[in-house]
Amino acid sequence: MARLAMVIDTAKCVGCMDCVVACKTENNVPEGFNRDWIVQDVQGKFPTLHMEIRSERCNHCENPPCVTCCPTGASHVHEYGGVVLVDHDRCIGCKACVASCPYDARFIHPDGYADKCTFCIHRVEKGLEPACVAVCPTRCMYFGDLDDPHSTVRRLMKERKHHTLLPEGGTKPHVYYLT
């Protein structure tokens, strides 16, 4: 069983939002909505500052509250790679999943269903990288299978310090940030 994950090197990310634009065009994300976004996290006092820049999106959590709270089964874990997806035809737009996501990664698509990052499963199943990963001009995003001992993501996780978002939430995110 594959366990797909995204590893993002915050040391290289410049916060250019190319990943956000690419997601827009690749997935026709409607105007005003975004599946991924940039966070600039600044600590300290001028001029001794530290800034972490993160490209954030659905973490495709291993314990996804958005799936457990869904009354219709529309939110589900895809059989391949543990990707968390929404089946538009089953979704009633009750917004429980939106409220249940500690990362506010979801939104209600103008067509009425809950929407979010899909890890570009439609590309991944064709052997392509997710659009955001493929476009990143700093090549700071890596995508792959954590269960594959030879994957780059696995190697980076071994070699580099990393963290996830709100680990205390117990959601077990599968988007990792190298520091």
Binding site: F33, N34, V39, Q40, V98, D104, R106, F107
Partner: peptide
């Protein structure tokens, strides 16, 4: 406290959740 900037402005989500 950190100075945090977020590019996301999703309707009903940002700046704080207001879906209901």
């Amino acid at each position: 406290m950190n100075e945090i900037w977020n590019s996301r402005t999703n309707p009903m989500i940002d700046p704080t959740l207001h879906i209901w």
